[in-house]
Design a protein around this nucleic acid. Sequence first.
DNA 1: CTGTATCCTAGGGGATACTG
DNA 2: CAGTATCCCCTAGGATACAG
Lengths: 130, 130
Amino acid sequence: MDMPTPPDQPGTNADCRKVNAIFGRLGDKWTILAITMLSGQPRRFNELKRLIGGISQQMLTRTLRSLERDGMVTRQVFPTVPPQVEYGLTERGQSLAIPLMQLSMWVLGHISDIEAHQALYDREAKQQRK
Amino acid sequence: MDMPTPPDQPGTNADCRKVNAIFGRLGDKWTILAITMLSGQPRRFNELKRLIGGISQQMLTRTLRSLERDGMVTRQVFPTVPPQVEYGLTERGQSLAIPLMQLSMWVLGHISDIEAHQALYDREAKQQRK
DNA sequence: CTGTATCCTAGGGGATACTG
DNA sequence: CAGTATCCCCTAGGATACAG
């Protein structure tokens, strides 16, 4: 019984919020790459690391943990002598991969146009201020 | 003729990189919300601000500038006495909105499952360590 | 091989005040 | 009303060292 009006901001539709939270995940530096590399076949930790390329051990661990927490990825440990851990997409992870790939395709199809537009924009901006 | 092997990291497919870069944009705190609010009809600055809710003036400006730079959004200034600026989606912006909405639908359809899985995961993790 | 613990930095993002 | 300029904080993410 405290807040008169702003308990929930105007257009802050709860749905939009949630969607955005997940997009934040997907948009982080490695998540999409990881999902992509896992679609099709399960992969071992270092195999993933090589495939992704440029990711630090720690970030790969973090990324995979988050995905595991979301139920997107399974983690199976084989207690062999040098321990092996295999990661794979869950059903949910695979179903996510579908709209994800569609969006990826859109980006790939438009990326050169976008980059051209950025270059143009930057050129105009530079001229304006000097 | 310099670099023997690592000029481009292993799996660092250039395509994946580019897709990821755009996803970083989409995943930032406000971009998706802004695109969503602009789909359907153009909006004025403060109108957008109200609709989105919780966004600072500066972040709205930055977000819109980025979208403009990418050619997703148009900006039209009406030199009225209190200046008015209207933002709208370009054709490219509208075409992006399509796969974006599909992904949003996926998230909305799975968000409760995901949250449940997270809660479960957190509970198990907590028990394990204490 | 896989994972955790530290430490550190760059930049995203908020608040506020000021301008045309 | 729309936008810029400052200042400041917090956290994503890298490097490194260590452990099972």
